[in-house]
Design a protein around this nucleic acid. Structure first.
Lengths: 215, 215
DNA sequence: ATATATTGACTGACCAGCCAGTCAATAATT
DNA sequence: AATTATTGACTGGCTGGTCAGTCAATATAT
């Protein structure tokens, strides 16, 4: 009995097609980031992807559809990691924070992926589909993860306040700040983002925990 | 010698012109907010302002110039208030926070002005002029105000941590969050913004101050 | 040889900016 | 005070360029 008979083996064509798909998504991401939705030109995306304009229409219905594909494609890896983190329900709260911040710094802030949030904020109002998707798949998951963990940590006495359990959004403020700062204000006033995130972490954990950081 | 010969008194013409200027700026704000820079049509702006398209060019050099005028015009009143707050250097820190948050809730979050930040984030990367202006006139002032006050409060023992003095950006995270939430995610998950800001304030002041809130 | 994937010139809608013309408000003249 | 001349703010139809989307022709794989 063949192991994977259902899925047809990749032929030369399929492989080439998949490569083109990636090239197109990457190119589209770059151009959308640089120009915004309306100002982005499909000619430029095609050129950058090394493909004719018509080819774009083999992968997406129209410009809007392409935009959604890009926005959705780019969070996939982060989503995966976030899910893994969420499964570790009995992690000490301090460790969870550290893990999350470091995931953020490595996988979002240090990569071009950091621009996604800017893009969502910029275009989200005009793309309810995207806003809704991001809320459902990323935002609400992140909030639930933090809110739940903070609640448990508060019950165990790890943290003194229940503010984070009630308003998990408070945790994400500085993350948003750091993304925006990088893109807009860094040139005029540099910001030690790692330092800021560490300070934020200490503040969330409360004074006691902050002292414990350096034994 | 005539007292004010240099400045010609406002005639009917000048008054009408000033009224049109306001109408144009307001209309442009609405359209830019709703559509973004590139997608906004000057025809629509003119129509909404009750003015012919050509008239727009009496007040601005081109579309880009108009955008800058709008972005700059809309913060003016907030800037003024912020300056007033900054002059009260010996306010207790808790009072400063309360004042600032309430200014934010009343003058930004509750008005259409709240959309400015979204606009800046959306278009700022393509309008260095705007990003620079906002950094110089709003961001850096707000940060200096908070950073300085937090440093003094820490020295006086009002707050236990010096994190806010070092990273005043931490204060603005939740403000940014609240603006974005309103515009993008409110429909899918309501958020008690006042509650969140109060919790944030307590967290910044530390546990002792939080208890003192209700005597 | 057939089927499928890719191309890129072309079309038509769209829109920023232009500019020749209009007319109410003011100034000059009688 | 009444009449005429001048100004310049305002108008809106037009133009030239731009660009999303199409499709007949071509290239490539099976």
């Amino acid at each position: 009995m063949p192991v994977a008979a259902a899925a047809p083996l990749p032929t030369k064509r399929r492989q080439a097609s998949e490569a083109r798909r990636r090239a197109i998504l990457d190119a589209a991401f770059e151009i959308f980031i640089a120009e915004g939705f309306k100002a982005a030109r499909l000619d430029d995306i095609a050129k950058r992807a090394g493909v004719a304009k018509g080819t774009l229409y083999l992968f997406s219905r129209d410009k809007e559809d392409l935009f959604e594909l890009v926005a959705l494609d780019m969070v996939a890896p982060v989503l995966e990691r976030l899910t893994l983190l969420a499964q570790q329900t009995d992690l000490p709260f301090a460790a969870l924070l550290t893990g999350m911040f470091s995931l953020f710094e490595r996988e979002v802030l240090a990569t071009k992926r950091r621009e996604i949030f800017r893009l969502i904020i910029a275009e989200g109002a005009r793309f309810p589909t995207i806003a809704k998707f991001y809320h459902r798949e990323v935002i609400s998951r992140g909030l639930a993860l933090i809110g739940g963990a903070a609640g448990r940590a508060h019950a165990r006495g790890e943290i003194s306040s229940d503010a984070l359990a009630r308003y998990p959004q408070l945790l994400f403020g500085p993350l948003l700040i750091s993304v925006v700062w990088r893109s807009l204000f860094e040139p005029y006033q540099p910001l030690d983002i790692s330092g800021m995130l560490a300070a934020h972490r200490d503040m969330l954990l409360g004074p006691a925990a902050a002292k414990a950081r350096e034994p």
